[in-house]
């Protein structure tokens, strides 16, 4: 029947766009040792936050807002890398699934949106980020549902998509609430800490005496 192949297209598109985005970002960036290790470290940090604290705190994860703030402080490229690698790394330990590429794209977008905030509202503080994080809680669910919808549901109508989305609504709300709480509690200090290191990384004046 028509639309059968949509599942294939969407899946392949997910894999390839994740790969292409990574590749493209990399080719444009002249990443030095500091940036490479900073990105990797933040990604490992986020992945650990995603996996470990979830259980103790009702599956709320103190992670998405950090990715967002990373983008906000370090710019789109670092934000994207940290975001995209977060699910990839944690899935190395709990198993990759068909959702990995889409998760990578979503998280990468979260990081890039942080950079967009800084670009659009240079004077924004963590309050703006908090609002955005809350929105991302739902948006993330909405994007992640696309794959499931396109592969398993016929016909591909708005109604069917809505139903799939509604099925995951409670999880999305939990995620959004978690983002809100964590960002409100930790956002300010995270921005402070990351800015401190951002400065330390970039200001390397060299003077001869």
């Amino acid at each position: 029947m028509t639309g059968t192949t949509w599942g294939l297209y969407i899946t392949i598109a997910g894999i390839f766009s994740a790969a292409l985005l990574m590749l493209g970002m990399e080719k444009k960036a002249g990443l030095n040792a500091r940036q490479v290790s900073l990105i990797a470290m933040l990604a490992a940090f986020c992945a650990a936050g995603r996996m470990v604290t979830g259980v103790a705190l009702l599956f709320l994860q103190p992670t998405m807002f950090l990715v967002e703030i990373t983008g906000f402080v370090f710019g789109a490229r670092v934000g994207f890398f940290v975001g995209a690698m977060t699910p990839l790394i944690s899935n190395f330990f709990i198993g990759q699934g068909p959702w990995t590429p889409w998760q990578m794209i979503c998280w990468g977008l979260v990081g890039m949106s942080g950079a967009a905030v800084r670009y659009l509202f240079p004077r924004a503080g963590y309050k703006t980020i908090t609002v955005l994080c809350f929105v991302w809680g739902y948006l993330y669910g909405a994007i992640m549902d696309i794959w499931q919808w396109s592969v398993f549901i016929r016909p591909l109508t708005f109604q069917s998509y809505f139903l799939i989305w509604a099925a995951g609504f409670s999880f999305d709300s939990l995620r959004a609430a978690g983002n809100l709480i964590f960002c409100a509690a930790l956002g300010g200090q995270s921005i402070k800490i990351l800015r401190y290191f951002h400065k330390k990384m970039d200001v390397r004046y060299l003077e001869n005496i």
Binding site: A33, V203, R204, Y205, L206, E207, N208, I209
Partner: peptide, 10 residues
């Protein structure tokens, strides 16, 4: 030093 750290050198 000073390649990685920057700073002032003589």
């Amino acid at each position: 030093i000073p390649d990685f750290y920057g700073g002032r050198i003589g």
